[in-house]
Amino acid sequence: MKKEIASVTTVERPEIISEAFGDPANPPLLLIMGAMASMLWWPEQLCRKLAYSGLFVIRYDNRDTGRSTKYRPGEPPYTFDDMADDAMQVLDERGIGKAHVAGMSMGGMIAQLVALKHPSRVASLTVISSSPIGLDTSHLPKTSDAYAEHSAEGAKVDWSDRGQVVDFIVRGARAIASTAHPFDEVRTRTFVEQDYDRSGGYLSATNHFMLGGGDAWKGRLHEMMAPLLVIHGTADPIFPVQHGEALAKAVPGAKIIRIEGGGHELHPDDWTEISAAIVAHIQAN
């Protein structure tokens, strides 16, 4: 009797580009950024500030951003679960078994998945400006009308036109900025232009808004083993601070630090408070 051999589909792992700061002998901290954002959105000076505090800091380009693998726009062949595995790939490539993990915005959601899927590899977790995964958040405050209107304008942008795209991203940065500090448009525009050119454009990055996944972890945040610190701006227009509070409430033992007037950003004037909080959380765990 002829034995049938099941066909196996091999999915090639993406190339994930990463960069590190500090002494590899120090406790590792893996940084995961949010939707459409390359590693550069973790400011280099903030990374160095964390490294000077005694950490080995790693940032990386998510799929479809920066110099990592990109896919056809509108057809992402991956999920949030795959992006959580990408984080483990970064650690594997650097020979790191266990690390402290910090994620911002969508990166904070990916970081939650990392901690749930790979508990033995996460020493502690910091989630910045994000929302809890696997929970009903319909009762929480929504994204501000002003930012929702800005996002809707994205449908009119020619994503192959550098000028249009840079203008749109800069307007978005202003819309989510801190209310406690002045918005530096010149610095922001220079940075966005740098990131756009390094990434070769942002068209593929729009795939991030089409992703699914994480369903297996619905209602299971209470199972998280990693000590959790939530950092959230009180003026965040994308995920109002109640999202951070709900996340902290869902995870036993979690702590939350509110950045007064903080928006959905890592403003230079808040780096000292943010980095001190992260370092203290890591040293305690």
Rank of each mutant, 00 (worst) to 15 (best):
D167R: 12
L247Y: 09
M36R: 14
T206I: 15
H118A: 12
S275D: 11
G261E: 01
L203G: 10
A216P: 07
F21W: 12
I133M: 11
H232W: 10
H100Y: 01
A99C: 04
V186Y: 15
V166R: 08
I58N: 02
E149N: 14
D92S: 14
G262A: 07
M39V: 04
A102Y: 10
N26G: 11
E185G: 02
A87R: 04
D158W: 01
Y60E: 02
G108R: 04
L266N: 04
L116Q: 03
A20K: 07
M39I: 06
A111E: 01
T9Q: 15
T234S: 14
H267L: 05
Q164T: 00
S38G: 13
I110P: 00
G233P: 10
R258T: 10
I278A: 01
E273S: 11
L30Q: 00
D82A: 06
K49I: 09
H264R: 11
F168S: 07
L116R: 02
Q112K: 03
A111H: 07
S130W: 01
D85R: 12
V101G: 05
G214A: 01
F239L: 12
R171H: 09
S131C: 14
K2A: 12
I128G: 02
G200H: 09
D158F: 01
K49D: 14
E273D: 08
T188L: 09
A25M: 13
H222C: 08
A87C: 15
H139K: 15
M36W: 07
A226E: 05
G261C: 02
S131N: 14
L266V: 02
L31D: 00
A25N: 15
A280L: 10
R121Q: 05
G134D: 05
L229E: 08
W42S: 01
A248W: 04
W217L: 13
P76Y: 03
W41Y: 06
W271K: 00
M106K: 06
R63D: 06
A102C: 15
P268N: 01
Y196E: 10
A87D: 07
V101I: 12
L203K: 13
P132T: 09
K3I: 11
I169R: 09
M104F: 12
Q194N: 13
N285V: 14
A6L: 08
G95I: 09
F239M: 11
S204R: 14
D236Y: 00
S138D: 14
A248E: 10
F168A: 09
E193R: 13
E149P: 11
F209I: 11
T234E: 04
E75K: 14
V90C: 00
A37K: 09
L125T: 06
F209S: 14
M104C: 15
M83Q: 00
H281K: 09
P28K: 11
E44T: 06
G172H: 04
S160D: 14
M109D: 05
A276N: 15
G244D: 05
A226G: 06
A284Q: 15
T143L: 15
V127G: 03
E265V: 07
A250N: 06
A123Y: 08
P119R: 01
A6W: 01
A216F: 07
H267S: 12
H100W: 00
W217R: 11
D136K: 08
L46A: 10
E245A: 12
P76T: 05
R171Y: 06
L116V: 01
A111G: 10
A248M: 06
R121S: 08
I282C: 08
K249R: 05
G34R: 02
F191L: 09
P119H: 03
